[in-house]
Simulated assay, not measured.
Amino acid sequence: MAPMRLENRTALITGAGGGIGRALAQSLARRGCHVALADLNAAGLDETARLLSTNRVRISRHLLDVADRAAVAALPERVLAEHCGLDLLFNNAGVAVGGHFADVSEADFEWLFEINFWGVVRMTRAFLPLLRASDDARLVNLSSLYGLIAPPGQSAYSASKFAVRGFSQALRHELEGTSIGVTLVHPGGVATAIADSARVPAGTDPDEAARAKAGMRKLLKLPAARAGEIIVSAVERRQGRVLVGSDAKVVALIERFAPVSYWRIIERLARRERSAA
Rank of each mutant, 00 (worst) to 15 (best):
N141P: 05
G177N: 13
L222F: 10
S168G: 11
P151K: 04
A191T: 02
G188W: 07
I180N: 09
A163K: 10
L130K: 07
H173F: 03
Y146A: 04
D207Q: 15
T192Q: 01
K213A: 12
E229N: 01
T178G: 04
H173M: 13
Y157Q: 07
E174N: 08
I115M: 04
P151F: 02
Y146K: 00
R165A: 10
A214C: 07
D136A: 14
S158E: 03
L222Y: 02
A156Q: 02
P201E: 11
L148T: 12
R226Q: 15
I194D: 01
S179Y: 04
A170V: 15
T204K: 03
T124E: 09
G215Q: 08
W118L: 14
A191R: 14
P201I: 10
A150R: 13
G119N: 01
N141D: 07
R226I: 11
E176T: 12
P187T: 09
H186K: 09
S158D: 06
F109Q: 00
V190F: 04
S168Y: 02
A225P: 01
A210K: 15
W118S: 05
V190S: 06
A137F: 01
E176S: 14
I194M: 07
I194Q: 02
S144E: 02
L112R: 00
A126D: 11
Y157E: 01
V200D: 03
K161H: 12
D135A: 13
Y157R: 09
A170N: 12
E106R: 14
E174R: 10
Y146M: 12
T178D: 01
E110W: 10
V200K: 05
A133T: 00
A150L: 03
K218E: 15
R165D: 13
A202W: 01
D135W: 04
A150G: 13
T124A: 07
V182D: 03
E176Y: 09
A198S: 14
L219N: 06
W111K: 14
L145V: 06
V200I: 13
L175E: 00
R122T: 08
V121T: 05
L171Q: 05
A156P: 06
L145Y: 05
A137C: 05
W118G: 03
L148Q: 12
A193G: 08
F162N: 05
K221Q: 14
L171M: 13
L175G: 01
I180P: 03
T124L: 08
P152I: 05
S160R: 07
L171F: 09
G147S: 11
G153Q: 11
A107G: 02
T183S: 15
L222M: 14
L222A: 08
A209T: 12
F167Y: 15
L148A: 01
G228I: 05
S155N: 07
P129R: 11
Q169L: 12
A163C: 06
R122M: 06
L130H: 11
A193L: 10
R138L: 13
A224I: 11
K161E: 06
T192P: 00
L131N: 04
V164S: 07
S197D: 14
E106F: 11
R132A: 13
E208P: 02
A107I: 01
G147R: 04
R199W: 10
F113E: 10
D108P: 04
R172T: 06
P223N: 12
Q154Y: 15
H186D: 08
P129E: 07
M216L: 15
S143R: 05
G166V: 09
A133F: 01
V140S: 00
A225K: 12
S155W: 01
